[in-house]
Design a protein around this nucleic acid. Structure first.
Lengths: 230, 230
DNA sequence: ACCGTCAACTTAACGCCGTCAACATAGCGG
DNA sequence: CCGCTATGTTGACGGCGTTAAGTTGACGGT
């Protein structure tokens, strides 16, 4: 086994930490499974002996955690950028959802690690969640949504997360040929649904006939508004 | 190590299979983590040596798969029962969602195994998905929903799954004290959203002002219908 | 110029895991 | 009564995460 060439100078051992982190994510993406993410494999790829990993991470779990943190940051950047491109709050919320799902589909292994591990990192996910709350808050101030922004954002996030998660973990379902169909349908459903849901009284769910009547009216009204403005 | 008392008679070796399966799920629930689901631990609890598991399961993965299949069946029973209790199709769809999420929350470890493993069982999930398609088809025939039942059901399932998944894997988020608030909000959002989404033209997402106008009209109409009938 | 100190790694080993090949044994059909 | 098959067991292998103890190289104080 060819040993690592140069040893780090005192004080910059963190260089190895970065290298390990990078190799861990590469290994994860290449193999497509976290079972293949072995401390030994990561160490070998970094041309270091296995216990050296313990100099920078307290164990395997901590290494995975660190990889996840990095992905959270990227996700946050991506959705912030998407939201920033538009001014209309409800459109921004839609862009948020689209960017979110697309990021998840672009990094399926990382996303599964992020959201589906037994104990995922709490603080980082909260930070990302804040972005969604902000987008929702803008809608509430605008008047298009009502209610507690936290709760509304949670409800909308669950839907978007479910879309990404199911697309990743259940590819055998009868998805349409173009994934964007489902993403768009989800985004619209969330938008319409949250709008109606926040403005409607909380008491009861309308029966089919009532819902259909109400929807028909809303649909005609929305259609008229849409063609009038365009 | 005290050996297993009696050995199974020829022809009913499947008894051990059942016992192993039961102990595997028990172990899973007790420890709360699939990492603790060890072939050795399962074998010991069944009072059998480890390689005996290989007589009934081709390996660890197959054992987990078998546990999952059993859970799928229970989930299918639960939602079928929930849907069968009501006649109104849109109410039935809501009951489907409620029962689905509650089942997931009642069996968090199993649900995570079911939906979040790298390679989840495809056929079983399809069978469960059929139930949802049936519920949606009833709504389409009723006229309250439009479009391809497969696609509509997928969109709605993603939202319900996301609700369950996020509740299970991200307990640190600012959930309301009563989980039913989120479940109800999700169910209503899905109902309203899917109804609006299937009846509206596919072209574009309305801007905030248009959406708000349409929603306001729909809300008043729905509210009137609700109080009139009740 | 030397030397101790300390960060940065390596060597060696432990116990647990999934898996497999080889061996043992009980009961039933002939 | 005998042999065959279903039903297990014994023993072992390699790989894993983790830990304790040893090694090495650079730097600061004297």
């Amino acid at each position: 086994m060819e040993a690592r060439r140069t040893r780090a100078k005192p004080g910059d051992g963190a260089r190895l930490r970065e290298e390990i982190l990078r190799n861990a994510e590469r290994l994860l993406v290449e193999t497509g499974s976290e079972d293949a993410l072995t401390l030994r494999a990561v160490a070998q790829r970094t041309r270091v002996t296995t216990p050296s990993v313990y100099l920078h991470f307290s164990g395997k779990e901590a290494l995975i955690e660190a990889v996840c943190l990095r992905v959270w940051d990227e996700l946050g950047d991506r959705v912030r950028e998407a939201v920033g491109r538009v001014t209309d709050p409800i459109i921004a919320l839609g862009e948020f959802g689209r960017a979110y799902v697309h990021f998840a589909l672009d990094h399926p292994v990382q996303y599964r690690l992020l959201m589906m591990r037994p104990s995922a990192s709490a603080e980082a996910s909260k930070a990302c969640f804040e972005h969604m709350v902000n987008a929702v808050t803008a809608c509430v101030e605008n008047g298009v949504l009502k209610g507690n922004p936290d709760t509304v954002a949670l409800t909308m996030w669950t839907a978007v997360h479910g879309c990404a998660a199911l697309l990743i973990t259940q590819p055998a379902l009868p998805w349409p040929d173009d994934v964007n169909e489902i993403i768009d349908a989800t985004v619209r459903m969330v938008g319409f649904g949250a709008a109606l849901n926040t403005h409607l009284p909380r008491r009861r769910v309308p029966r089919s006939a009532e819902l259909l009547d109400g929807v028909t009216v809303a649909a005609e009204r929305l259609k008229a508004l849409g063609s009038k403005k365009k």
